[in-house]
Amino acid sequence: MDVLVDLGPQFLEATLETLWLVFASLFFGGIGGLLVGLALYVTRAGNLFANRAVFGVLNVIVNIFRPIPFIIFLTAFQPLARTVVGTGIGTEAAIFTLSLASTFGISRIVEQNLLTVSPGVIEAARAAGAGPIRTILTIVLPEALGPLILGYTFVFVAIVDMSAVAGSINGGGLGAFAIQYGFRQFEPVVTWTALAIVIVLVQLVQFLGNWLARKVLRR
């Protein structure tokens, strides 16, 4: 147990790094995913801005990049991170690549949740004289809000998972910490403590997400 006390400051630092990695990526990836998901949704055949070409291109891009295992994605996109953030290693570079990777995943979740909005409700908005942009902002997004919150909660957990390999480009976080101080130094207590922190974090966010979604859905 002494090892935990000795590692106290590093533990705190690793936890904060994970929180920073995850929330920053959720923020940027969340916005990116929302935009790409909306674009997929509205350009789909029969929808408000149906456009076969745009939908086809977006669809293929998302299909190509979404399934790439994150550890490969992280290393493959290091040059891009270097161009955009100025560095290919460290927490900022990891956040950039995490955001990019989660944009693809989130866009599918957003698209799928928006598709659950009944076309009849959209027709009712159009019949009331609403234009497409207004329909999306005042009807489609609010109608899908409950499932979207649950979708983003799911994504949060996925990003926690992805953030664990940020250490491979020196991005820090609990994953790197557990490997470095737990696994490599034969201190299972350290590994298990890191694990416990992740569990608590995920449980808290899942609880919050469920609560919010229930509030929005009124059930």
């Binding site: 009944s118 009849g120 409700v121 009712a124 109608e143 809000l145 929005v216």
Partner: peptide, 11 residues
């Protein structure tokens, strides 16, 4: 316009 399935905004 009114509809068979009412199409009310549930939100």
């Amino acid at each position: 316009m009114i509809f068979q399935q009412f199409n009310l905004f549930s939100s």
